[in-house]
């Protein structure tokens, strides 16, 4: 499913129960023009900025990382993490690409104790 179609489906699902989820009202709360949101929903324009996607996710109760991925983007905090150690993380992700979800969730991190 495309980004636009996904957004439209999520918004229309909410609109059935609450009229406050019209294109106009959602656009107003997210801070974009209704005509722009309408074009996003019809995939007539590229997905919006990371910040706008984040606001859309909050408005529609969707996962921002999922929406960013559908928009072909990676959140800036994840980019920062990768850019700090690009080779290490690229290799790690390649190794984990076929690992089952459970194995990835099982990854544990050691906690450092400092001075206190």
């Amino acid at each position: 499913m495309t980004f636009g179609k996904y957004i439209r489906t999520a918004r229309e699902k909410r609109f059935k129960e609450d009229r406050a989820y019209s294109v106009r009202q959602v656009a107003q709360r997210v801070g974009v023009e209704p005509s722009y949101l309408s074009k996003i929903e019809r995939d007539q324009v590229a997905p919006p900025s990371e910040a706008a996607i984040g606001r859309l996710a909050r408005e529609l109760g969707e996962d921002p990382d999922l929406l960013l991925a559908m928009a072909g983007k990676v959140s800036s905090d994840v980019q920062d993490i990768i850019l700090r150690r690009p080779q290490l993380f690229a290799e790690l992700l390649r190794q984990l690409k076929d690992a089952p979800d459970q194995a990835i969730e099982e990854v544990a991190r050691e906690i450092r104790d400092g001075d206190w």
């Binding site: 993490i81 991190r109 906690i111 450092r112 104790d113 400092g114 001075d115 206190w116």
Partner: peptide, 20 residues
């Protein structure tokens, strides 16, 4: 969250304490 993953954005004293 690990303090060590957010060393630049957590309050200064937290880095010395470590932890989560």
């Amino acid at each position: 969250n690990l303090v060590d993953d957010y060393t630049e954005s957590v309050p200064a004293g937290w880095n010395a304490h470590g932890g989560v």
